[in-house]
Simulated scan of single mutants.
Amino acid sequence: MALTEELLLERIRSGKLIEGPEYATERYIEGLKRTLIVSADTELISAPAYFRAAQDAPNINAYISATGIIQDELGHAHIAYRLLRDLGVDTDALVFERDPKDFKHPYAFDVPLESWTELVVANAFYDRAGFVLLGDVYRHTSYAPWKRALVKVDREENFHLRHGERWMEILAQDPDKKRELQRAVDWMFVLTLEWFGLPDHLKRHTEQIAYGLKGKTN
């Protein structure tokens, strides 16, 4: 029997997972691809932004921690691109042949990170946003391959945001660094809000909730 939208939705509502594209409709797959591209592009574009700011690390141990986070982010991008490849997407073209303006990522990564202070605020804010968004997908997504892949990602994003929070506490103990920290917080908090997307009534695509690709609305 051919899979219809009605049968697919019934399966999802009953709590069953979708194990691959052969068990989904074209509309489900297109919505999944759109969501995965945003996730993959965001993880990938974070690496050069973080690497730039890591050059300002106060010591070698801090620099090693930052490069470890960058390595994690590239790994997270690889996971999402690999899932896209399994869905039939030409990921080589996606990564290497697209015009830079066609990448789908939060505006925050178009603004250079210039210092160690800005890097750790990015860990505390941007990685917190990523943890909230991908944590929701990890707990609620109906697409089984992504749910399994996010076990590792969820743990590592938690480390990233804790790294940012711990360093913010350290910097806040120095009056000069505290002022620098506050300046970073003032502009980076606003950019973090954009990670969560448009208000629900302005969204153009509703399949993320309808198909259980994630559990929470914007």
Rank of each mutant, 00 (worst) to 15 (best):
202 L>C: 05
103 F>W: 00
127 D>T: 04
24 A>T: 12
67 T>I: 05
55 Q>V: 11
94 L>N: 12
69 I>V: 13
198 L>W: 12
199 P>R: 14
158 N>W: 04
94 L>M: 13
135 G>P: 03
12 I>K: 03
154 D>I: 12
95 V>G: 04
179 R>H: 08
214 K>M: 14
118 E>T: 02
29 I>K: 15
71 Q>M: 07
74 L>F: 10
128 R>S: 11
152 K>A: 13
54 A>L: 06
20 G>K: 09
2 A>H: 11
93 A>Y: 08
36 L>M: 10
93 A>M: 08
25 T>N: 07
190 V>L: 07
10 E>K: 10
52 R>K: 09
183 R>E: 11
122 A>M: 08
106 P>S: 11
184 A>Y: 01
207 E>L: 02
207 E>N: 02
192 T>H: 10
128 R>L: 13
163 H>C: 00
135 G>Q: 06
150 L>M: 01
140 H>F: 10
29 I>R: 15
115 S>N: 07
100 P>T: 10
132 V>S: 06
62 A>D: 14
216 K>Y: 14
31 G>T: 03
62 A>T: 05
75 G>L: 12
218 N>E: 11
64 I>W: 08
152 K>H: 13
187 W>H: 15
155 R>E: 12
30 E>W: 10
82 R>P: 00
210 A>E: 01
177 K>V: 01
33 K>L: 02
108 A>R: 12
178 K>I: 06
29 I>W: 10
192 T>A: 15
100 P>C: 10
153 V>P: 02
155 R>G: 15
146 W>Y: 07
100 P>K: 10
190 V>Y: 06
27 R>Q: 06
51 F>V: 14
3 L>S: 02
122 A>H: 05
119 L>V: 08
161 L>R: 14
166 R>I: 14
178 K>N: 12
198 L>F: 13
80 A>G: 02
188 M>Q: 13
17 L>Y: 11
151 V>M: 13
157 E>W: 00
108 A>C: 14
164 G>I: 12
138 Y>D: 00
67 T>Q: 02
83 L>S: 00
40 A>Q: 04
115 S>R: 05
113 L>I: 15
148 R>N: 07
26 E>N: 07
218 N>K: 04
190 V>H: 05
167 W>K: 07
4 T>A: 04
66 A>S: 04
165 E>G: 13
11 R>S: 09
145 P>G: 04
16 K>G: 07
151 V>R: 15
10 E>Q: 08
38 V>W: 15
80 A>N: 10
47 A>M: 09
60 I>S: 13
216 K>G: 03
197 G>R: 00
114 E>F: 13
72 D>M: 05
209 I>F: 06
213 L>Q: 00
156 E>T: 05
51 F>I: 15
7 L>M: 14
105 H>D: 00
114 E>H: 13
121 V>F: 11
4 T>I: 03
203 K>H: 03
86 D>K: 14
64 I>M: 12
38 V>G: 07
82 R>F: 05
36 L>T: 04
36 L>H: 05
117 T>P: 09
174 D>N: 15
76 H>V: 08
203 K>Q: 06
138 Y>C: 00
199 P>K: 13
98 R>A: 01
136 D>W: 06
175 P>F: 03
